[in-house]
Design a binder for these strands. Structure first.
Length: 371
DNA sequence: AAGGTGCTCAACCGCTGCGTC
DNA sequence: AGACGCAGCGGTTGAGCACCT
């Protein structure tokens, strides 16, 4: 390889930074920005390599860094995200404003990993140790769920990255999507600049139903990729993934969505048995079924269900409403009083897979309250 | 007080991905 | 297409500190 010539090459200084060096670096960046890190040390009068300067700045000197003890909420966020993302510290750091990936990595290695181990939870798989030993009873719903969610989050991160690239290339990156039939709502959301997201599946579901918006799966995406602060369009990843209603794609692949289920081998358990996709779900008393309304028409309608997460009961659907999934948009719309999602499978591969994953799993988040 | 041990975290190292030529 | 330069990432190290014996 030998592709990263650095301070080791020419006797540049290593080790701890002196206050004078910090001051030089800060002054230079405040005045000029960092520009090329490689060129910076010479310009700033530092006997360091660019890499060292970048690290010192990003991990220590940057003014927007929050130092000090991690809050309980931050700890929980790290654990949940680690379950989703593994050791992708920079991805995790994007969900924790003002914390650096290095800091989070250190905190994980020195505190959280040990704590989970003490609790009998494998810090790698996030499963109880006994599960990790591998009994064959299909017990690892949580692991499967986390894996599904990880796929979702990965897709989201990919979409975000794609967006950032597109955004850099064009001042109007969504124009072509609009022409292809992106819904007006999705479009308006994609145009509204908003903060990076945290994954919140439960709130996403509830947000969709409480929005009162009909036939607008962009709302789902918007809520799912919940915003906090900074600057990325809230619904962009969702629309990139195909959550926006796209009429062209609706017309494609008559059996796409059915095939998707078949591919996932989910149809038998989920639809035929009329079983709950959420292990802890309680059926509501009035319409206590998941209704699979004509898979043959490439639609499924789900009505009236609640499920438990962390001891709280969540209503998946409001009363007298139902959820339709399907690419037969007319039928879906007719059946749907709360929301629906349209789009062909080929375009919406991630979307359908993730919906299926969602339906097939419960929330596996756990809290630190018992630690 | 001195030596040993464990912990923390800033910094380093090696590698990868991406853009450019 | 491949070589190269660069920035960024994740794993690892080691100096400094606190605590224990």
């Amino acid at each position: 390889m030998g592709r990263s010539p650095c301070c080791e090459k020419v006797g540049l200084k290593k080790g701890s930074w002196t206050p004078e060096e910090d001051q030089k670096l800060m002054s230079y960046i405040e005045e000029h920005g960092h520009g090329s890190w490689r060129a910076l040390p010479a310009k700033a009068g530092l006997q360091r390599c660019g890499k060292s300067c970048r690290l010192r700045w990003t991990n220590y000197l940057r003014p927007d860094i929050k130092r000090g003890k991690f809050s309980l909420q931050e700890e929980q966020t790290i654990i949940q995200l680690h379950a989703l993302l593994g050791n992708r510290w920079s991805a995790i750091a994007t969900h924790l404003p003002k914390r650096t990936d290095n800091e989070i990595k250190n905190y994980w290695n020195t505190h959280l990993k040990k704590r989970l181990t003490k609790m009998g939870i494998d810090p790698v798989t996030h499963k109880p140790k006994s599960y990790a030993l591998g009994s064959a009873t299909g017990q690892s719903k949580d692991a499967a769920n986390l894996s599904h969610m990880a796929q979702w989050e990965s897709a989201r991160l990919e979409a975000e990255a794609r967006f950032v690239r597109e955004y850099k290339l064009s001042p109007h990156p969504f124009q072509h999507q609009y022409k292809q039939g992106l819904s007006a709502t999705a479009l308006s959301i994609t145009h509204s600049l908003a903060p990076p997201k945290t994954l919140d599946v439960v709130n996403a579901w509830q947000g969709l139903w409480s929005s009162g918006s009909t036939n607008d799966c962009a709302v789902f995406g918007d809520t799912l990729f919940n915003s906090s602060e900074n600057a990325l369009p809230a619904a962009l990843p969702s629309s990139t993934l195909g959550l926006g209603v796209n009429e062209n794609s609706m017309e494609k692949g008559e059996n796409d969505w059915k095939h998707c289920f078949e591919r996932q081998n989910k149809v038998p358990e989920f639809i035929k048995d009329n079983a709950t996709p959420f292990p802890d779900m309680q059926y509501s008393t009035d319409e206590s079924t998941w209704i699979a309304d004509s898979v043959g028409n490439n639609n499924i309608v789900i009505s009236c269900a609640t499920f438990n997460v962390d001891g709280f009961s969540h209503h998946l659907l409001p009363e007298n409403s139902s959820l339709s999934f399907g690419e037969d948009s007319d039928n879906a719309n007719a059946n749907c009083t709360a929301g629906s999602a349209g789009g062909g499978f080929e375009e919406n591969n991630h979307y359908w897979n993730n919906i299926i994953s969602l339906l097939d799993s419960s929330s596996a988040y756990y809290s630190l309250e018992n630690v």
